[in-house]
């Protein structure tokens, strides 16, 4: 569960201070599928960094599972990321020289999990992300974009996180593979009750979520249930 109370974030470059986020307050319950939508420069990336414990707010309180993380050190934040957060990036960020299975198991290396258990968890996560078994020993650069993003989804799932943060996950994909990725999110949300936060600038992508937070110029302008929810095409599920 996430609770934000009056979060602000300002950056200083030289004399000029820019306020990237102004008094954002909201609550995200466990099991919600939420989209944070806004144009570029709206402050949605800043919000994602704070939600993902990559950064701390300048002022305000951020509770993740009832723990205030606003005042933690870098290494304490790393420990929280390791235990509670799964990241999915626009550009996948896979290690090019490690196999798919090693890429997926990487977060568990830093969590200090035994090798056998890591591989077990990685295989489960790959199955959950609907990644075909015959590519498990491939290198990421031998895979298509859609497949790479599935590896990244499996990596985000592997530590069984409280929240999955997806930053423009379809940004580098064509419509069809993007649809596949969104279908995977919807399935994970429905079948496993995962909490998913989708950051995007595309209304079409945001409409796959249950709830949409609209952000503009650092402020939340709208936070409402999505009444026109799209269901990703189930037919494209199998490749």
């Amino acid at each position: 569960m996430i609770e934000c109370k009056n979060i602000s974030k300002s950056y200083k470059s030289g004399e000029i201070e820019t306020l990237a986020l102004k008094n954002a307050s909201f609550r995200i319950n466990n099991g919600e599928f939420i989209a944070i939508m806004g144009p570029s420069g709206s402050g949605k990336s800043t919000l994602m960094h704070i939600l993902g414990c990559l950064d701390t707010p300048t002022s305000g309180l951020y509770f993740l599972d009832e723990e205030n993380i606003a005042a933690l050190s870098d290494d304490e934040l790393a420990a929280i990321r390791s235990a509670k957060i799964g990241f999915i990036f626009q550009s996948f960020n896979l290690l090019p020289r490690s196999t798919v299975i090693r890429n997926v198991a990487l977060p568990l290396v830093y969590a200090g999990i035994q090798k056998e258990k890591r591989e077990e968890a990685a295989k489960n996560a790959l199955n959950d992300a609907a990644f075909p078994e015959k590519f498990w020993q491939y290198m990421p650069n031998q895979l298509s974009g859609g497949m790479m993003q599935r590896v990244a989804i499996a990596r985000a799932l592997v530590n069984n996180p409280s929240i999955i943060l997806a930053d423009e996950p379809t940004g580098n994909l064509d419509t069809k593979t993007g649809e596949m990725v969104l279908e995977t999110f919807q399935r994970l949300h429905q079948e496993q009750g995962r909490t998913i936060i989708l950051i995007t600038h595309e209304p079409y992508v945001a409409e796959h979520a249950e709830r949409i937070i609209q952000i503009r110029d650092g402020s939340i302008v709208e936070d409402d249930k999505n009444n026109h929810r799209r269901i990703a095409n189930r037919i494209v599920k199998t490749i």
């Binding site: 993902g52 790393a78 990321r81 290690l95 990596r155």
Partner: peptide, 16 residues
């Protein structure tokens, strides 16, 4: 650099 960023994002501590 990007790899280091990723490793840190998924839970690597400074020491790691």
């Amino acid at each position: 650099t990007r790899e280091i960023g990723l490793r840190k994002a998924i839970g690597a501590k400074k020491r790691d």
